[in-house]
Amino acid sequence: MFMKRSRRRLGRATAFSGGWSPPMRRLRTQLAVITTASTALLWLDNLSEHYRGGFERELMYVPILANPVVAAAGAVTAVTGGRRGGRLFGLLSAAQTAIAVVGFVEHQRGILKKPGGNQPRQLLFNAWYGPPVAAPLQYLGLGLMGVMATVPQSAAAPLLARIPVDRLMRAFTALNLPPLWAEIGYLHARGSFQNRAQWLPVVTLPLAGAMSALAATSDSRTARTAAQAASGWTALLGAAGTGFHLYGLHRRYGGYRRGSFLFNWLNGPPAPAPLQMIGLGLAGLAAERAVTRR
């Protein structure tokens, strides 16, 4: 029964799947899955941070409320392989990039508004304890990924004709890494690199970024290997980082004990934050798999 219906559905080309080759269809579904999962996890991080900031401004509710809607549309898209919800997910993802840009601007304004905001020497201090500088850009990245997962073939064709999708994704990765790197760098500096492992992303992400950027300019086998290594490493860093952050929570006073956990979760190393690197890395790897060259 189920099989029958799905076969019938498959036969009908939707705006989502229409015109795409099977590998590209698979890639788009994978992107939808990754984007949805990353968005949902970002919600947790976002909620923790904005709650910690006491929702001082009403604008701070916007991503918290918008995110689940985007994630829900993404989930439908992912589960149905794009047969349902694809267009809505695409539109919402586009809207999310706008929210991200507003958020980014507001975060900088928040930092500049703090006492001493007019003194360049106090900027770093204010950024440490103000709204995180680059965090909203994560929404920008995920919004763009949502768009990539849903854009109709006709719209994407001219671009893809010039740059194949794997190279496009390498460029996308390369663009995503610098803000991520900056954010990790200045926040790990706030923790004064008390654990040597805090240097790991700070030192290696620029390499991964450079490798992705270079690989984006070439179709060669080396370029592909480099891109795979960069993405794989980014995903690994994400996994390791999550582990370290969970361990970091345990090192705080009261650790995981009931009375202390919420406080430690809010003020300790953000446990869900490194997961974004897993998403980015996996998306890169998926794009490499989607393209076969001789």
């Binding site: 001493g116 008390q194 654990n195 006073y253 406080f263 003020n267």
Partner: peptide
């Protein structure tokens, strides 16, 4: 001119000592 003071309580873990709550 003002600065956050230099203070003898941890802002990040040190050995088995946790940061300030």
């Amino acid at each position: 001119t003002w600065r956050p003071g230099a203070i003898a309580t941890l802002s990040a873990p040190k050995g088995d000592r946790p940061p300030c709550v």
